[in-house]
């Protein structure tokens, strides 16, 4: 990065637009590896896979742990393992390349520079992700860093780790439902209708909240907030205005369509059980 001809001490300008985006799977993977770490190990280290998006955001989509040994400031990484795993992963998804590495623990430690240097040889400007599995600050902190080299001429003096903004994308997790991922155990995956029921209950609760808020404002309990009012007006306006007749027709048509579907599927089922009965009867020939 900081290749320069001048002999002045150079602080390369931080790459401004760099940010990272982490998919929940990566966090899960890191936590799992941490739980399964060897007895004597203090932290786990691993490779991050993903891609760099056109706008410069580093999209971290996958990860795998790499065994390592750490003693008295020295870190020995199993490079062979790292390469084997990389080849295996690329067989499945060639689009995912190395984008950096992760380590558990809070912040950057001394050994990190060495490992970072190793990853710099694999990919230019790797991202270093730290996941504080020990909750040393009493909170789950996940941070991403890039490193810049401080160099004097051709001599490298030090590496500077700079924190970059991190976007924890949970949309995928949302689709699965946090309920599955937050709790320690769930006995059953809800069926279509149970899920629907939960969603509707939540919607109802939200509408109730809005009612309460509006009533409160009208009675003068809380001062009116224009922006909130505008949001409420927007959501009320999002219900299309139709004449009751047209609306009834629309609803009834759809209901009839659905009923027809139900009827069809029931008739198919009847047909199936009938066919089965006939088949067993035919077997008596």
């Amino acid at each position: 990065m900081a290749a320069s001809e001048n002999t002045a001490l150079l602080f390369p300008s931080p790459s401004t637009s760099l940010s990272a985006r982490v998919h929940p799977l990566v966090i899960f993977n890191i936590c799992d590896c941490y739980v399964r770490r060897p007895d004597q190990a203090v932290r786990v280290i691993g490779t991050l896979l993903g891609s760099v998006l056109p706008d410069g955001t580093v999209d971290i989509r996958n990860s795998y742990a790499v065994p390592h040994n750490e003693f008295s400031g020295q870190v020995a990484l199993d490079i062979e393992y790292h390469h084997n795993m990389l080849i295996s992963h690329q067989k499945v998804n060639p689009k995912e390349v190395i984008v950096g590495w992760y380590s558990t623990g809070d912040g950057v430690t001394g050994g990190s520079a060495l490992i970072h240097e190793f990853y710099s040889r694999e990919v230019s400007n790797p991202v270093h992700l730290t996941v504080d599995t020990g909750f040393s600050n009493g909170q789950a902190s996940i941070k991403a860093y890039v490193s810049t080299n401080l160099s004097l001429g051709d001599r490298q003096l030090a590496a500077q780790f700079q924190e970059i903004s991190l976007d924890l994308r949970m949309v995928e997790a949302e689709r699965v439902g946090f309920d599955f991922l937050k709790k320690q155990s769930i006995d059953k995956i809800p069926s279509d209708l149970e899920g629907m029921e939960a969603s509707m209950e939540r919607l109802l609760a939200l509408i109730d909240d809005v009612y309460k808020y509006v009533d409160n404002v009208v009675e003068g309990g809380i001062p009116a907030d224009n922006s909130v009012g505008r949001f409420i007006a927007d959501s009320v306006a999002s219900i299309p205005k139709m004449s009751p007749l047209a609306f009834d027709k629309l609803i009834n048509d759809s209901i009839q369509d659905q009923l027809l579907l139900l009827y069809l599927s029931s008739i198919t089922r009847t047909q199936l059980s009938l066919a089965e009965k006939l088949n067993t009867a035919a077997q008596n020939l």
């Binding site: 909170q139 789950a140 949309v171 997790a173 937050k182 320690q184 769930i186 006995d187 969603s199 939540r202």
Partner: peptide
């Protein structure tokens, strides 16, 4: 099917993502 998560993951998820009233799922 039963779903289970390690305590660590469950803590992380709870910490990182506060209970939101509406999710994509809804």
């Amino acid at each position: 099917i039963k779903v289970s998560n390690s305590a660590l993951i469950s803590t992380f998820m709870t910490e990182l993502e506060a209970d939101s009233p509406v999710t994509q799922c809804d």
